[in-house]
Structures are given as structure tokens and as C-alpha cells.
Write a protein that binds this DNA or RNA. Structure first.
Lengths: 339, 339
DNA sequence: TTGAAAGCGCTACCAC
DNA sequence: GTGGTAGCGCTTTCAA
């Protein structure tokens, strides 16, 4: 089993040892040169030799070994959301990633869907990220504890609830429903329907929005009617068919897509919008502007990636600081023709 | 600098050594127990003690240390796409992730946007993934070489081109344009416009689609007119305003969203669909069915996640096998009322 | 049935 | 200026 040290196996991955051997220096020197270590002076010829050797071998440092040695990493872990990501959310995440990248963090999305039990928390903890950003609800205090025990310096949740021990960017969708209901009420509507998508993954948003509607109308003479609806033409048609029986004069359609779905069915049944029934969506997508009548909607303001990234960075730098709770979801009605 | 071995620093992360100490066994035993090693027999009382200790300390193994020791990982790296991910693509990725998860791979999305130069390739290589799945074009043969040198056992590209050394799932969007053009031609249309979104990130798709249209109509009496269009009402209105000058009797609108945008503008200008101008989209989104006239579209068939996962797994198991080239994009027209 | 020890690739502290 | 070397947390071979 003797192996000539000069002849590394043909298809083995080059290590800093290989680079050192080829350059005729020690591994320490290689490390110094490739990391531009400020404290030690290495002569220019040596630097050149090392770099040339690294180049020739196609040497790429081993991140795991490095962070094992260093005792910490700059990996920010973000579990995939448990809800289908719409364009709004995708842009938000994208923005955040870029901002964290500028602060020199490596953002990594991990493909576990919720609910985020202890199993999930442990799986994330194995990766020893410096921070974990959890979209939506489902991470319990126990999960947070597991992560912190494993050296995660900041746990941040984006969701409706505060989780003990974690920073929270409160995105309470109740305000979306609240806005919408307020608007409909101000327009004189009193019998208000609220669409609830049947996709259970959307309940994270739909239930708080419904709740917001309820709260906005509490103590008034208005009524709230829940309207379960699948994302499907047939379901919309069936709902529209019994529209008269429902006796509604307005509907908050969960979002613009469902608003479009329902509007179509209502129009096909001969229900006048907004004359007979007002319709309002949410998310302020382009498609709302293209409908006729133009769709009123609730514009949702998500926080800028840069601000979040700063928050994460601060939390990482000072892990013992009190968890921050910040309400970050802005909502305002964009009135158009459908209400 | 003497430290009592019995008193680990309050906030240090528990290691297998800590577990061993608490359970009164060696680290080896801990490893055996927690990994259910089949080759060695450990007595039931010992197992219990070890598990209890791990539980009490909140021990989570260190993935990096493990894979460093093992010499390989089961991480599949997937860079974020360089184009905005539509619902179609998101579902596809989701599906693929789940399938790979079932094969016991850890899928990780890395947030670098393209173009995927050597810098990006090196950044991925640092993570020593077992496979890299690259969406879209932009990874060159040099990038593939860097990855392979670093021990990546399978590089798979999803995109329009074959990259040397990598497996390719050819998603040539030309066939989408081809289908659409063929359909319009068969309907008797001869002056055909093709919408080109101005977002440069979409050129990956729009140019091949245009090319497909060109090829389908080559040698016929039909003409092709490029129609650059921003995703914006004003741009659509301006395009519609000069519709008569363009003298078109059909348009392939890139996808359903742009089709909706343009249809609206055309209707507002009084252009009859399909009487005067036929409109066809692509992607077969729900919204096409909700438009009036109902939107004809090209349904795009993406490969099942399970099949891809199998391909990746095979490639990982046998890295020396010849790179596979597979055309995986199916397209068929769904004729509705707009053509 | 359990333990001692080597070593994965890397960096940082000293000594030369 | 450069090199030797310890050790990050883990698994696994060999010995007891």
C-alpha cells in the first residue's frame, strides 16, 4: 500500500497539500497566500508560484473543512416556504438574498416544506448555519431552541406569529383583510363575502385575512360570509350559480387571481360588477389593471431586502440582544372600477 | 488556560465528545449508537444511556465534519435560475426537490444569479456537492471542468444547449414557437407577429421561441414580425395603436401573460380577436381560460421530477458514464377561441 | 462489547 | 519570510 507522494491518484480532488507540494512550499504558506493573510509577509515570487500551482491543479478550497476549522460559517439558511410562492414573495426573497450576498453571507435555500417540526429544525441545525430565516408559521419554540443550541446565532421568522426566542418580522395578513373590508364598508356595502381558497397551504394567509375582515366589521351592521373556493373554473361557476341566494353585495376575493376567477364566473352568470356586487382582490398584480372593470385591490408592501439583511447582520453580530419584533407588512387599498 | 473538562463553556455547541462524557462511554460508541451501525453490537443499556445523553444535551451532529470524514456528501446543489421563475418552473423545481429528497439527497438552492461564470462555478465547488443542477444556459465547459475537478459527480443542465461534459436535459423552447406558428398557419394566418418581452432575462426563452416560429414558417408565404414589448400597459397600448400599420393577422404573444396584456390593448383599440387578429399565448395558465375570447395557448410539458431524480441518481452512481442528452420539453397547442 | 487513535482539509499559533 | 503542528467534529479500523 505504498503510494508515491509525488503521484496523486489521477482523479482525486486537489487539496492545499497538493498545491503546496507542486509549489514547493508548506500548506501554511499556501493558506496564507490564497487568503491574503495580512499578518504575514510572503515574498512575491512565492506568492506567484503558489497561485500558479493552485491554478494548474484547479484547486478550490473545501468550505466545510474551512468552517470546521474556523468554528463558524457565513451560511444563512432559508427553508423553502410551505406555501406556493407567488410573484410578490419570490421578488421579496430574491431581493433579500441579494442584500445578504452583499454583506458577504452565503444564502442557501433548503427544500423542506413545512410544517417545520423538530425533525426539520434538526436537519437545518446539522448544516450549522449562522442564521436561519423561516418563512411562514410552523416553527415552534422547541425548534428555535434546537437551532440555538447548535450555534445558530440568529433565528428570524417571517410570519403571523411571534415565536419565543426568535426575531420576528410580523407579517400579519389581517391588515390586508382589514383594509379591504373597511373600503367595502365605506363604499356602502354591507353583505360581504370573503373567498377562502381551498388549498390548505394558503390558509396561512386566508385565515388571517378573513380575521381582519371580521375585525374591521365588528360592531357594525355588516355581515361576513365565508366562501370556500377551489382554484378552478367549475368551482367558481357553481359558486356564482348560487350568488342570488347568498345575497351579497360585495366580496373580498382573497387575491387578484381568485378575484379574476370569481369575476369571470359572476359576469358569465349576469351579476353586475360593481353595480350588483363589488369585488376587491389583493396583491396588486398587473392582471387586475387589465380586467374590465379594472379590479380594485389591496397593495401589499413587503420590507426592503436591504433592511432585513441589516437586521439579520445585527442579530448575528450580537446574538444575545433581545429578539426584535417588527411589523413589516404594509397594506393599502388601490381603488379601481370594481368597487 | 486550564479548563476543567467536566465544565464545558456555558454556551458552547454540544459535540459527540460531550455526549460520550455524559453517557460515560467513548466517542466511538456514541457514533455507533446514533448511526445505528450494523456491524457492531452495543448493549441495550448503553444505547439507552447514549440516546438519553444526546437528547439531554440537544446534540445535533455536524454535517460538515461528517462529510469531511466520509469524503463525500449527498448534497445536490441547484443555483437559482437567472430568469424570473414562473409558476410552471416553480412547480417543476418543487417536484424535483421532493423526488430527490425521497432518494435521500439534500437539495440546496444557492442564490447566485447567472451568468454562471467560473466565479460561480468555484463558489459552488467549494460546497463539494455530489451533483449540480444548473437551470438555463450560461454554464460553460470550463465551469463544468472546475466542478468535476472538485469531486462533483454529476453536472446536469436544464437549458437550450449541450455543455461539454455535462448531462443535458434539453429544453428547447423553439418547439413552443414552432407549434404556435404551425397552428396559426393552419388557421390561414399569414402575417404573424411575435412578441419579444423586453426583459433581457426572458431572452433565454423568447429568442428560441421566435426561432421556432421562423423555422416553422420558413419556405412558406407567411411573414414574421418581431414585436418588442415591455410588461406594462402603456407599452401595450402604444403597440396596439400602430396595429393597423403593422398589417398583422395573428400574433404569438410569448406567453399567456403577455397575451393577456396585448389582448387587452387590442380590444381597447377595437381590434377584433380572432376576427381581425388571432392571438395565441403559451404556458396554459388558468387565466387564459378566463379571458374572453378564451385564449388559445401552447401547453408546455415539463419532465416529471421523479424521472429527473432517477437520472441524477444514476449519474451520481456512475460518474464515468457518457453524458446523457435528453430532450424533455413537450409542447402542444390548446386551441380555444382566440385563434 | 467497548475504547484508542488516525485522519478527512483547513487555518493560526509559534518557532526557526 | 516560511514551516511544523495542533486541532475543529466526526467515523472507522484495530486492539483489548
Amino acid at each position: 500500500m505504498v503510494q508515491l507522494p509525488e503521484t496523486p491518484t489521477q482523479h482525486s480532488v486537489p487539496t492545499s497539500t497538493d498545491v503546496a507540494r507542486l509549489a514547493g512550499v508548506s500548506r501554511a504558506t499556501v493558506s496564507y497566500v490564497l487568503n491574503d493573510a495580512g499578518t504575514v509577509r510572503i515574498s512575491e515570487p512565492t506568492r506567484r508560484r503558489v497561485r500558479a500551482a493552485a491554478e494548474e491543479l484547479g484547486y478550490v478550497p473545501h468550505a466545510a473543512a474551512r468552517s470546521l476549522r474556523a468554528g463558524h460559517s457565513r451560511t444563512v439558511l432559508m427553508p423553502a416556504p410551505s406555501f406556493p410562492a407567488g410573484p410578490l414573495y419570490s421578488r421579496f426573497i430574491d431581493d433579500l438574498q441579494r442584500a445578504l450576498g452583499r454583506l458577504d453571507y452565503t444564502v442557501v435555500q433548503h427544500g423542506t416544506a413545512g410544517p417545520y417540526g423538530e425533525r426539520a429544525a434538526r436537519a437545518w441545525a446539522e448544516l450549522r448555519p449562522v442564521a436561519v430565516l423561516v418563512p411562514g408559521p410552523g416553527l415552534g419554540p422547541q425548534g428555535v431552541r434546537i437551532l440555538k443550541r447548535s450555534g445558530v446565532r440568529a433565528v428570524v421568522t417571517f410570519g403571523p406569529e411571534v415565536v419565543e426566542g426568535a426575531h420576528a418580522l410580523l407579517m400579519d395578513h389581517a391588515c390586508v383583510g382589514h383594509c379591504a373590508a373597511r373600503h367595502l364598508y365605506d363604499r356602502g356595502r354591507r353583505a360581504i363575502g370573503v373567498v377562502l381558497p381551498e388549498d390548505p397551504a394558503l390558509e396561512v394567509f386566508s385565515l388571517p385575512r378573513l380575521d381582519g375582515v371580521r375585525r374591521a366589521l365588528h360592531g357594525t351592521d355588516a355581515t361576513v360570509t365565508e366562501l370556500p373556493l377551489a382554484h378552478d373554473e367549475g368551482a367558481a361557476a357553481r359558486l356564482a350559480a348560487r350568488w342570488d341566494l347568498l345575497g351579497l353585495d360585495a366580496v373580498f376575493a382573497y387575491n387578484d387571481e381568485y378575484a379574476m376567477l370569481l369575476s369571470r364566473a359572476l359576469k358569465d352568470t349576469g351579476v353586475g360588477i360593481p353595480r350588483h356586487t363589488a369585488v376587491i382582490g389583493a396583491d396588486d398584480l398587473m392582471l387586475g389593471r387589465l380586467l374590465r372593470p379594472r379590479l380594485s385591490t389591496v397593495h401589499i408592501e413587503l420590507p426592503a431586502g436591504r433592511d432585513l439583511a441589516t437586521l439579520v447582520d445585527r442579530a448575528v453580530r450580537d446574538p444575545r440582544a433581545a429578539p426584535e419584533r417588527r411589523t413589516v407588512l404594509g397594506a393599502r387599498v388601490v381603488p379601481r372600477e370594481s368597487t
